[in-house]
Computed example of a mutant assay.
Amino acid sequence: MTDRHPEVSPFRFGVVTPFGPDVAGWTETVRRIAGQGYSTVLMPDFPRLQPAPAAALAVAATVADVRVGTWVYAAPLRRPWLTAWEAHSLTLLTAGRFEMGIGAGRPGIEEELRERDLHVPSPGERLQQIRETVAALRELDGADAHTPVVTAVTGPKARALAAEIADTVTFAMTPTESRASVEERIRSFDSTRKVELSMHVPVVGDSVSPFMAPPDIDTGSLRETDSLSCLPLDPAAAADELRRRREELGVSYIAFGADVADTFAPLVAELAGR
């Protein structure tokens, strides 16, 4: 965390909420998450495996008074102007409750792009797509709106871009990456603006949340290495760990999977907004 902004933000919590098994069940999950105090319902961007994020989030925003967001748009899947138009439309339709999460694309997306006869951009081209998307979004928002942008980053060039254009930065990590490596990446982040720091937690106890990490992860090894990609199942112990992360790293916005939302409802009640 940069020394220019030593203050930390209040805790808030999002839930990656994949669709399934039916509309009634999914909308009930959205209502329950909102009622438990989570700030944001998040939708993964997995073509064919999930409904399009914009459509799903528009529905979510009508069934509960909750923020909605993409976790995260894969920039190579769409032209920048199309992503920006979709994001701005969601800001309008949700009365300002939409957050655009965007990143360079998950591991393995190159094969998905080839299957769809889409160009496979270089890492530099992907960052340029993100820059162009946010620039187009700002033009569409104009002076009367501001769609918050959440960027998922790993390398130094992505972190530099995020420091320039993002409202929230989430630090992507492989589940097996060492705690020290991720902590160093977070501590090296520097911005002249106040930027909220975020982290997604795909593993809780022995549970791996769908669409957040590969299902065959060795969860025992993660605990042995004190990985930042996991939390203990006990809400009190998890709350202590999140306080530690905020104190040491400045991370205040945490995304869980919907499969652990009920378990962590007491944690959210204790920490959210504080």
Rank of each mutant, 00 (worst) to 15 (best):
V208A: 00
M199H: 10
D218H: 04
V208Q: 01
L197H: 01
P232Y: 02
D206T: 05
L231I: 04
P202G: 03
L197I: 08
E177P: 05
S209H: 04
V204G: 00
V208S: 09
E184A: 11
V195G: 05
P175Q: 12
S191F: 00
T219R: 06
A172P: 08
T219C: 09
I186W: 01
L231G: 06
P215A: 11
T225P: 14
G205S: 05
M212V: 13
R223G: 10
V201I: 15
T192I: 10
A180L: 15
P214I: 15
G205N: 02
G205I: 03
F171M: 00
I186A: 02
D206C: 02
K194Q: 06
I186Y: 02
P210R: 07
M173D: 11
T174D: 13
T174R: 13
V201L: 05
V195C: 14
P214W: 14
P202M: 01
M212W: 11
I186K: 03
L222P: 00
T219H: 09
T170A: 08
M173C: 12
P202K: 00
S221Q: 15
T192K: 12
R193W: 02
P232E: 06
A213I: 07
S181F: 11
R193M: 10
C230Q: 15
D226T: 13
T176L: 15
T192H: 14
S227Q: 09
R193F: 00
A180D: 14
S198I: 14
S178Q: 08
D226K: 13
T170W: 02
G220C: 10
S191G: 04
F171I: 00
H200M: 13
P214N: 15
F171P: 05
S229G: 15
P215E: 07
D226L: 15
L228K: 04
S207D: 02
R179V: 04
L197M: 13
L231E: 07
A213F: 00
R193V: 02
S198P: 09
P210A: 03
T174E: 15
T170N: 02
T176S: 15
E196G: 14
S188C: 07
S191K: 07
T192N: 12
T174W: 13
A172N: 07
D190S: 11
E177R: 12
E183Q: 04
V203K: 06
T170G: 01
P232F: 02
F171T: 08
V204M: 04
T176H: 11
D226C: 11
F171S: 03
A172Y: 12
G220Q: 11
R193E: 06
K194A: 10
H200K: 08
D190I: 04
T192F: 07
D226I: 08
S178N: 01
P210H: 09
V208C: 09
G220E: 12
E224S: 12
F189Y: 02
A213V: 03
M173R: 12
E177K: 09
P202H: 00
L231V: 05
I217H: 05
S221G: 12
V204W: 01
E184P: 05
S198Q: 13
K194E: 08
T174P: 13
V201M: 08
R193A: 01
P215R: 09
F171L: 03
E183K: 04
S181R: 10
E177S: 14
M199Y: 07
S178M: 07
L197S: 00
E183F: 00
